[in-house]
Design a protein around this nucleic acid. Structure first.
Lengths: 232, 232
DNA sequence: GAGTGGTCTAGACCACGAC
DNA sequence: TCGTGGTCTAGACCACTCG
């Protein structure tokens, strides 16, 4: 008698782990499981829905429910907001705007954001400070056609990152991370020799099929970027 | 009359975007919203639960539901499984086990995993290959008390990462990323000069409050780690 | 103590899509 | 076509926690 959706979820996981149900196999339908577990179908549905959301099961109407063949390891992740990270580390956050212009982006950026040829974008280069020491150099492009309001935002007041996170929720994106030698401009701003290895993060964010922003950040040596993984 | 949980979710989002409900504000309780929307409380519950899971709302019993103060940009993320990444890039994946032992971990690792003093753990050092070229050096510790079955797994057959992703879903964790100079062992295995800047990733994974595994990976120069952000 | 969210139930209808 | 999952309902009880 399993009468909570968590208990049912755990039992299903146990059967998968014990190979009673193998990847690719169909599992009994909700009604049958409800009988077996002695609970309502809605309770089974809740458990299986969570497992499907986590990528453990695959569900299709009429076809039924199967154990996922290649269980994608999926996790929730908090998008790092530099301001918050710095403050939570007990340090004083600062932000310096180095450049703000509206112009045509380089071809590489335009391609990555899927901008029309000739299109202009808002370009903001800035430095993030912790206790007055620079720790991140940021080069960002924003498509003003997707985010018209951004043109009126005073980046001296609030960083583009913060404004976007607060005002453009529910977006998709891709993130690329590497260790790169510092280019001249980043090296100068961060106060390190050119060619020093830096943590580089590039992120492009989308909303309804259009690119909102593309940002490249380079962090001072010794910086650890931390991600919280939730609900694996 | 809103009678689907998606419609209610969208309406709540609209009110937040329109500043009718501001960050930090409490919103009406489920029963009142059910009356307003002309639907059952369970339907409102479903909508608000999804929004809370996405970080848009914060819910506490008795205290009620509020618009999240600092809307954490949260995103779904696929945990990178090196095998799959390599294959999807059209290259041949290989895996070489360098060391497998059961011993007492160094204090730093034990502390990070919250192991008892004197406790032993499974230690696996391995190399990931793409087209026979090494591209990632991995140093992993696994708590056999949490994952007894791991002791019987043949790491020559399947990498620890893959086995864990398939068999220990639903975990939490934290991930730390930096650019580091290559230590001697990693440098030798990856075939680069000692001190070369490498992308370093550390991940500790938890299940029900106990550490499952701690892994440190160092990637060959030029490697970009990519994360898909879904459902921001 | 009492109000709120968290959950379960039994039943119902519907949409999708495999057959 | 018709079985399956997806969802909604009305009601109920419980757990947590704030005042």
């Amino acid at each position: 008698m399993l009468a909570s959706w968590q208990a049912i979820r755990d039992e299903v996981l146990r059967r998968i782990r014990d190979r009673a149900w193998r990847p690719g196999d169909p599992i009994p339908n909700e009604a049958d499981l409800a009988v077996e577990f002695g609970c309502a179908r809605a309770t089974v549905n809740r458990a299986l829905r969570e497992l499907a959301q986590a990528g453990v099961l695959e569900r299709r109407r009429r076809a039924g429910t199967r154990v996922a063949l290649a269980p994608v390891g999926r996790a929730g992740m908090k998008i790092p907001v530099l301001h918050r990270d710095v403050v939570e580390a007990g340090r004083r956050y600062g932000h310096r705007l180095i450049l703000r212009e509206v112009c045509r982006p380089p071809a590489a950026i335009a391609a990555r954001m899927g901008l029309r040829a000739q299109a202009t974008a808002l370009h903001a280069v800035s430095l993030h400070l912790a206790d007055d020491a620079p720790f991140a150099f940021e080069d960002r492009w924003i498509d003003p056609e997707v985010v018209p309001a951004i043109l009126a935002v005073d980046f001296a007041e609030v960083s583009a990152n913060e404004w976007l996170v607060e005002n453009m929720p529910f977006s998709e994106g891709d993130m690329r991370i590497a260790a790169l030698p510092a280019p001249a401009d980043a090296a100068r701003q961060l106060g390190v020799p050119e060619g020093t290895a830096l943590l580089a993060v590039e992120r492009t964010t989308w909303r309804e099929g259009r690119a909102i922003t593309h940002v490249a950040q380079m962090f001072a040596p010794g910086h650890w970027m931390t991600l919280d993984l939730v609900t694996g």
